[in-house]
Amino acid sequence: MGQANTLLHIRGVLPSLRPAEQRVANEILENPQQAVHMTISELGRRAQVSDATVVKFCKRLGYKGFQEFKILLAQDVVTKPQPVYGEIEPADSLGTVKDKIFQSNIQALQDTALTLSESALEEAVHAILSAREIHFYGIGASGLVAQDAEQKFARIGLPARSFVDAHMQITRAVLLNPGDVAVGISYSGDTYEISHAIELAKEAGAVTICITNFSKSRLAQLCDIVLLTASREHVFRSGAISSRIAQLSAIDALFISTVLQDFDRFQACITKTRKAIEARREA
């Protein structure tokens, strides 16, 4: 099995692993350079699990065994070294906060560029171009991303709407028809309201797409097309800092890829709407 990045793959499935397997994952994520040189017994001892658990961990990620996993991990450690940056601490200076925020966002963009599947992106573009109605669902910070998506796709003349209220999401989802598109946006992939709306949209026959950080989440399992982001949220998770940046960039990639499929038509729409805005500005 080939992964764009083994460490990113581990982070993406971490919440779905069993507790013992999570200990193996955390040991590797915290010490990737050392893990490359460990035997299966050494890794098991460091993670306080059995050799069999290490093997199960590797197979659960889709690898044939520990040796294949180590080979691919070694390639990532050598060719894609992990940058040094830390969590924001209450005692950090303004300068340190600034550096950590920007480094976190930069890393989220770089990791998402590796994780976001081009084939999934292509499938999503084709579904959007064929849809008679396009919905974007989000709650909280992901709702802001949904609204940004509506602004972009509606501006090129596509029938896009965003819904950030749970009742509006489900009442509109059940009215979708086969061939329509519903896009659920959730960092965790476990936001009940988004999964419920997507489930109803799927039952109505719509093509379902999600933008999420975790490939084994409920939302990802429900959707026809999964657009994976790769951001790490820590102490200030409620602020949805780097995850929002990664989601917005995934929307941007989806939008531009759609525009390029019929550039003249969509560029004409952008020009027309820009002129309408410019007419409102004071001379």
Rank of each mutant, 00 (worst) to 15 (best):
residue 73 L to K: 01
residue 86 G to C: 07
residue 104 S to G: 15
residue 98 K to Y: 04
residue 98 K to I: 03
residue 92 D to Q: 01
residue 91 A to W: 01
residue 55 V to M: 13
residue 100 K to F: 00
residue 68 E to T: 00
residue 88 I to A: 01
residue 50 S to C: 06
residue 64 K to F: 07
residue 108 A to P: 14
residue 62 G to A: 00
residue 91 A to D: 10
residue 102 F to Y: 15
residue 67 Q to Y: 12
residue 78 V to P: 07
residue 97 V to T: 06
residue 95 G to K: 12
residue 61 L to G: 02
residue 108 A to I: 05
residue 68 E to A: 01
residue 68 E to P: 03
residue 50 S to M: 11
residue 94 L to W: 01
residue 106 I to T: 15
residue 58 C to T: 13
residue 53 T to Q: 14
residue 66 F to S: 04
residue 82 Q to Y: 07
residue 97 V to F: 00
residue 95 G to M: 08
residue 86 G to Q: 04
residue 84 V to D: 11
residue 72 L to E: 02
residue 103 Q to F: 01
residue 71 I to R: 06
residue 51 D to L: 11
residue 59 K to L: 01
residue 93 S to Q: 15
residue 108 A to V: 05
residue 75 Q to C: 02
residue 65 G to H: 06
residue 77 V to I: 08
residue 87 E to V: 10
residue 67 Q to N: 13
residue 58 C to K: 02
residue 95 G to Y: 11
residue 88 I to C: 03
residue 61 L to Y: 06
residue 104 S to P: 15
residue 55 V to Q: 15
residue 81 P to N: 09
residue 71 I to E: 02
residue 99 D to E: 14
residue 103 Q to S: 13
residue 75 Q to D: 11
residue 80 K to L: 14
residue 63 Y to A: 00
residue 81 P to E: 12
residue 94 L to P: 14
residue 99 D to G: 06
residue 80 K to W: 11
residue 105 N to L: 08
residue 107 Q to E: 15
residue 76 D to W: 13
residue 91 A to F: 05
residue 69 F to W: 03
residue 73 L to A: 01
residue 92 D to R: 03
residue 51 D to A: 15
residue 88 I to M: 03
residue 70 K to Y: 04
residue 93 S to G: 11
residue 84 V to F: 08
residue 91 A to T: 12
residue 73 L to Q: 02
residue 102 F to W: 14
residue 75 Q to S: 08
residue 80 K to R: 13
residue 52 A to C: 11
residue 90 P to Y: 00
residue 85 Y to N: 09
residue 60 R to P: 08
residue 71 I to H: 02
residue 80 K to I: 05
residue 98 K to R: 14
residue 83 P to S: 13
residue 87 E to I: 12
residue 95 G to D: 15
residue 64 K to S: 14
residue 81 P to R: 04
residue 105 N to V: 12
residue 98 K to P: 03
residue 73 L to R: 01
residue 96 T to S: 07
residue 99 D to H: 11
residue 83 P to E: 09
residue 80 K to D: 13
residue 61 L to H: 10
residue 101 I to D: 12
residue 68 E to M: 03
residue 75 Q to Y: 13
residue 80 K to M: 15
residue 50 S to I: 03
residue 66 F to V: 02
residue 51 D to Y: 11
residue 74 A to P: 02
residue 83 P to G: 07
residue 94 L to Q: 09
residue 94 L to K: 05
residue 97 V to N: 00
residue 106 I to D: 13
residue 61 L to W: 04
residue 81 P to Q: 15
residue 60 R to I: 05
residue 80 K to E: 08
residue 87 E to Q: 08
residue 54 V to S: 11
residue 88 I to N: 03
residue 52 A to W: 11
residue 85 Y to I: 00
